[in-house]
C-alpha cells in the first residue's frame, strides 16, 4: 500500500475533500452550460486553480514530513516575495531584504528539527533585532523606521505565521488515527471553508455592513453565519482529525472563524492602502498567493497555540 504510512482518518479526510472538489467542478460545469451567454471564465479558472492547490498540497502531504516542510517553506518564499514586491522597499535595503529571505530556510530548519524554543523566538526576537542592525551598517537613515517596520512585519506575516502550519505536521503524539496531517487538514479545510461560508451567508442574508471602510461587501450576517457553520463543523470533525474533544473543537471553530475573518480584512486593508485589487496574479481566478493565504496568516498561529497549550 503506497498510503499505508498515512493515518486512516487523514486518508478519509483527503478523499472527502476530493469528492467535494469533484462535486463543485460538476456544479460549475452545469452552471456554465445552462447559461452559455454569461462569462464564467473567472469561476472556471477558480475551480481549476483549486485543483492545482489541493493536488499539490496533497501530493506533498502524502510524500511525508520533510516534503511538507519544503512545500510550506516555498509557500512562505512566494508570499514574502509577493508582499515585498507590492509594498515599497528602499533601494538601499536590497541586502537586508536578501537576509529576510535567508530567514525562510532557517525558520523551516527549526521546524524540521522540532526545536520549538528556537522556532518560536527566531523571527520575533532574533530577526527583529537583526534587521535594524543590518540596516545601520548600510547607513541610510531616511525612511529608516518605516523600512525596518515593513520588513519585519512582512517576515512575521509570511514566514512566522505560515511556518506554524508546517509545525503542526511534526507535533508528537496527538491523535494516532489522524497524525500531524490530521491537524494540518483540519486547519486548512476549516479556514478555507470559513471563507466560503462567510461569503455564502453574506450573499444569502447580508444586510448590515460590518466594516464598510475596509471591505464594503462583508456583513454581520455573513460573519455570524460563517461562525455558526464553522463552529459546528469544527466540533463534529475534531475527534476524528485532532486530539481535541468535541467541546474543544467548538472552541477551535470559533478561533478559526474569527481569526480567518480578521486575517482577510487585515490583508484587505493592506491592499486598500496600496490601492490594488489583488496582490498578484500567480493563481488564476484567485489573485496572488496572499489573497489565498490571508485568513491563514491569523488562523495558523492561533489554532496552533490553542492545540499546543491543550495537548503538547
Amino acid at each position: 500500500m503506497p498510503f499505508s504510512h498515512i493515518p486512516e482518518h487523514s486518508i478519509y479526510a483527503m478523499i472527502t475533500v476530493i469528492i467535494v472538489l469533484i462535486t463543485a467542478s460538476i456544479i460549475q460545469f452545469i452552471i456554465s452550460h445552462k447559461h452559455p451567454d454569461k462569462d464564467y471564465t473567472e469561476l472556471r479558472q477558480r475551480t481549476i486553480s483549486w485543483w492545482w492547490i489541493i493536488g499539490l498540497l496533497f501530493l506533498f502531504l502524502v510524500m511525508g514530513r520533510t516534503a511538507t516542510i519544503f512545500f510550506f517553506a516555498f509557500i512562505s518564499f512566494l508570499a514574502l516575495k509577493e508582499f515585498l514586491s507590492i509594498v515599497s522597499t528602499r533601494q538601499a535595503d536590497r541586502t537586508v531584504v536578501f537576509w529576510a529571505y535567508i530567514s525562510i530556510p532557517l525558520q523551516y530548519f527549526w521546524v524540521s528539527e522540532a526545536w520549538y524554543g528556537m522556532f518560536i523566538i527566531f523571527i520575533p526576537v532574533y530577526l527583529f533585532l537583526f534587521i535594524p542592525m543590518r540596516m545601520v551598517l548600510i547607513g541610510e537613515t531616511e525612511g529608516f523606521i518605516k523600512a525596518a517596520g515593513v520588513l519585519h512585519w512582512a517576515v512575521m506575516l509570511t514566514v512566522f505565521s505560515v511556518s506554524h502550519i508546517a509545525y503542526l505536521m511534526i507535533l508528537p503524539g496527538g491523535n494516532p488515527l489522524a497524525g500531524g496531517i490530521g491537524l494540518v487538514l483540519y486547519l486548512l479545510f476549516l479556514t478555507q471553508f470559513n471563507d466560503v461560508s462567510q461569503y455564502i451567508w453574506g450573499k444569502l442574508l447580508g444586510q448590515h455592513k460590518i466594516i464598510p471602510k475596509v471591505s464594503p461587501n462583508k456583513t454581520w450576517e455573513g460573519f455570524l453565519g460563517g461562525l455558526l457553520t464553522i463552529t459546528l463543523t469544527a466540533g463534529f470533525i475534531a475527534p476524528y482529525l485532532t486530539p481535541l474533544t468535541q467541546l474543544q473543537g467548538f472552541a477551535a471553530g470559533v478561533i478559526i472563524s474569527t481569526g480567518g475573518f480578521i486575517g482577510d480584512v487585515v490583508i484587505s486593508s493592506v491592499k486598500r492602502d496600496l490601492r490594488i485589487k489583488d496582490c498578484g496574479n500567480l493563481i488564476p481566478g484567485h489573485g496572488g498567493i496572499l489573497d489565498r493565504m490571508d485568513s491563514l496568516i491569523y488562523t495558523a498561529p492561533l489554532f496552533f497555540h490553542f492545540v499546543y497549550y491543550l495537548y503538547f
Binding site: K81, L84, T89, R94, T95, V97, F98, Y101
Partner: peptide, 19 residues
Amino acid sequence: HGLGRALPRGEALFVPFTC
C-alpha cells in the same frame, strides 16, 4: 517594473522580487 529592484545596474546581488 520592479526589475531594477531585483538586479539594478552595477549590483551583483540578485534579490527576488515579483516584477
